[in-house]
Design a protein around this nucleic acid. Structure first.
Lengths: 104, 104
DNA sequence: TTGACATGCAACCATTTGGTTGCCTATTAT
DNA sequence: ATAATAGGCAACCAAATGGTTGCATGTCAA
């Protein structure tokens, strides 16, 4: 799971996932289009996403097709984010009131 | 939002959030307890979490109390993870079938 | 008021990260 | 057959990251 969080920490990688979400099965060159970085940089990002199991690839001739795997993202939602959903932000005023009590 | 993703990318920081989730309003020293790193390292992690608005702090005498703010985590769930929830992992067999079609 | 305690600040360090360039290999099209 | 196309590999680099240590400051208690 750490792999997934680390992979998601980079904006370029999140935008690659967005692109695949918009259109699945793109080649490396497709994914490079319009991006302000070298093909090799993109390759590295894709490798990190693949290691985190966020994308799966399939060779087809000289092309490599990239497919989004939404499962790990879903699991982060289920196993991590949901835990915090019940917690509510205690207003600062409320906090202060509690603190006053502590002193009595 | 990038701040939040980056803050969550580190296991130590996620576990600090977990600790606050278990018991809110802990001091720096509380949070250091049992952790295998210096107080200053923890301070830095907490600063990053605070910048990402994941925790709020309140000075109380010589102590600094740390409170979890679950809102940004919730927002990542709503604004980012939900988007991918509808996407389904296309089985590899399915993918291959699609590829065969491409060639015709 | 003086010592202990809770925290802050700054300099420093090794490793990781995100990027580059140059060249190599494999597949396709002419 | 040959050139163009798609991608892979490796070396290198600067900056960010996660950690350390040493010292300073502010607050509480004896």
């Amino acid at each position: 799971m750490d792999d997934v969080f680390k992979a998601l920490a980079d904006e370029s990688r999140r935008s690659l996932l967005d692109r695949l979400h918009a259109r699945n099965g793109q080649t490396l060159n497709d994914l490079c289009d319009g991006l302000d970085m070298s093909r090799q940089a993109v390759t590295k990002h894709l490798a990190i996403l693949e290691t985190a199991n966020l994308i799966a690839t399939l060779k087809h001739g000289r092309e490599k097709l990239h497919y989004l795997n939404p499962v790990p993202i879903h699991e982060i939602g289920e196993r991590w984010i949901k835990k915090f959903d019940r917690a509510k932000l205690v207003a600062l005023g409320e906090l202060k009131r509690q603190l006053e009590k502590r002193d009595e």
